[in-house]
Design a protein around this nucleic acid. Structure first.
Lengths: 113, 113
DNA sequence: CGTTGAAATCGACGAAAGTTTATATCGAAA
DNA sequence: TTTCGATATAAACTTTCGTCGATTTCAACG
């Protein structure tokens, strides 16, 4: 199942109710955002100027173990929020802005008319 | 801790990394969105024309038990996404658009410059 | 009053999630 | 090929979460 496609097909919450299938897909993505460590990782990657962050830099920014960081990165990658690329011994992660944008659109509330 | 205030003080993810306290607060709200039943409940309330939905109508829309729906409503209420009001024997829930809007802003990605 | 219906709370149980330690993989370098 | 540093995977443990049945609260009504 392609989560980004599910997001693209899901109308804003204020427009019409989600069906069960849409809700299941969208919930998977929000669940990935429902952890403080993952949120911080995502914000580090998303706000990085160059667009790329080395795993080693992320690991250094937290007090949890390296496997824990690796696990959280996998979760964020599995839901389509991040992608990774290996170069030499290092792995770099960068944001998938489309996924984040779809999420934002899903939650968007029109200005009070 | 007032979650809406935390949301108001948290910059968009693409702007700057969240600190630990902000991440903890924001994660609580996203965690509430990370369940299919809660997402559907929220979308039902958010998209309702009159702005209000009776608990009885929500319960009828799902196949889970009444206590389960009540539990999910409490979660959504605790994070500031919904508010409730009792009238006679019935309880009505409605959306807090500010909270949803802050979440949307948090995830917003500027158009690719 | 006592009853009835709607909604919330409680207690318990199984499943899922976050973390750690230990181990494996992978690429570079000696 | 052996070693070393970086990252991922595996196994195990603990806590959290979603769900249910049973009970309670609350308001309206006989």
């Amino acid at each position: 199942m392609e989560l980004l496609q599910i997001l693209e097909c899901s109308p804003p919450l204020v427009r019409q109710p989600l069906d069960a299938a849409q809700a299941a897909g969208v919930a998977t993505v929000f669940k990935a955002l429902g952890d403080p460590v993952r949120l911080r990782i995502l914000s580090i990657v998303a706000s990085r100027a160059g667009g790329e962050v080395c795993v080693c830099d992320i690991t250094d920014a937290f007090e949890v173990s390296q496997p824990t960081i690796s696990h959280h990165l996998k979760v964020l990658k599995d839901v389509g929020l991040l992608v990774s690329e290996r170069r030499a011994s290092w792995v770099y992660y960068r944001l998938v802005p489309e996924t984040l944008g779809e999420l934002s659109a899903l939650l968007n509330v029109p200005v009070t008319a």
